[in-house]
């Protein structure tokens, strides 16, 4: 199932609704890379609240998305990681280094507002 990407001001919000295949993840990466340029976005929020598993491919792709969008001028924040998912990620030795994280959508917006490069006209 492809991930819907919403635009809110200068922020793109990718809200993951169900478990994703590797193909869906790659498609998400491509779409975000493209839309960040098209909408001149400064921030990307990926909401993973609905995910109850995250494997190595998913964490790697999220790192990839963060790196890609940074090159395109947008900061990526992953929000809504569940406690059990967080424990699993750490225990599997996976990381989200280089990716900003926040508790939920609201905190994610806060974080983007605070970042130094942020355009105040959000």
């Amino acid at each position: 199932m492809p991930v819907p990407i919403l635009k809110q001001g200068q922020v793109l919000i990718a809200s993951i609704q169900a478990a994703l295949t590797d193909q869906d993840l790659l498609q998400l990466q491509d779409e975000l890379a493209e839309k960040v340029g098209r909408f001149r976005s400064r921030g990307v929020i990926i909401d993973v609240t609905a995910l109850d598993v995250m494997d190595s491919f998913a964490t790697r792709t999220l790192r990839g998305i963060a790196a890609t969008t940074r090159l395109r001028g947008a900061k990526t924040v992953v929000v809504g990681v569940q406690p059990d998912v967080a424990i699993a990620i750490v225990q599997l030795g996976l990381t989200l280094h280089g990716v900003a994280t926040a508790l939920d959508l609201e905190e994610g917006f806060e974080l983007l507002k605070q970042s130094a490069t942020w355009n105040r006209s959000l």
């Binding site: 992953v78 990681v81 406690p83 967080a86 424990i87 990620i89 225990q91 994280t101 974080l111």
Partner: peptide, 12 residues
């Protein structure tokens, strides 16, 4: 370390 990293994933 694991506790700290897991907390970081929750944005804390």
């Amino acid at each position: 370390i694991q506790t700290v990293e897991a907390a970081a994933l929750m944005g804390a």
